[in-house]
């Protein structure tokens, strides 16, 4: 595992496999797991049998930390964030943590300010503003 040593999310070194994969925000995971949970309950008479601890813990976690509660807001948030040429991983960290200030956004996702990226403070500010609007009008 040579990749293990170099892994660093702050510089977006998360391995090719995950860089290309679709990231999910907590609110999106909540919707998927909810759906799956309903399915499981319909399928089996004893649903507790089927549900793993990992599933249960993940479900509790994403419910607790979901920023957007309804489907439309979740979609809008992703749409807003995807306008800014962010990597999937960056998009989801921002969507999950909803920073209030530009400074905070850069602190939690340092890679948006790294070399070769043209994201100016103004653009970040606009992005955060748009995000907060979604939350307000949800």
């Amino acid at each position: 595992m040579s990749g293990e040593e170099e892994e660093n999310a702050a510089e977006l070194k998360i391995g090719d496999e995950f860089l290309k994969a679709k990231c999910l925000m907590n609110c999106e995971v909540a919707r998927i797991l909810d759906h799956k949970y309903d399915q499981l309950q319909q399928m089996s008479t004893d649903p507790t049998n089927q549900i793993s601890q990992v599933f249960e813990k993940s479900m509790q976690y994403v419910k607790r930390f979901s920023n957007y509660k309804n489907t439309d807001a979740v979609r809008q948030a992703r749409e807003v964030l995807s306008r800014y040429k962010l990597a999937e991983f960056e998009l989801c960290v921002l969507g999950n943590l909803c920073p209030d200030t530009v400074e905070e956004a850069i602190a939690i996702v340092p890679s948006i300010k790294s070399k070769g990226r043209k994201l100016e403070d103004d653009a970040i500010e606009k992005m955060l503003h748009d995000l907060s609007l979604i939350k307000k009008f949800e």
Binding site: E7, A9, A10, V54, R64, F65, V93, N96
Partner: peptide, 15 residues
């Protein structure tokens, strides 16, 4: 599948 993978350097919320 939906997987959960923590990364070094990642910032997240926890209980």
């Amino acid at each position: 599948a939906v997987v959960f993978r923590p990364f070094k350097g990642e910032i997240l919320e926890a209980v």
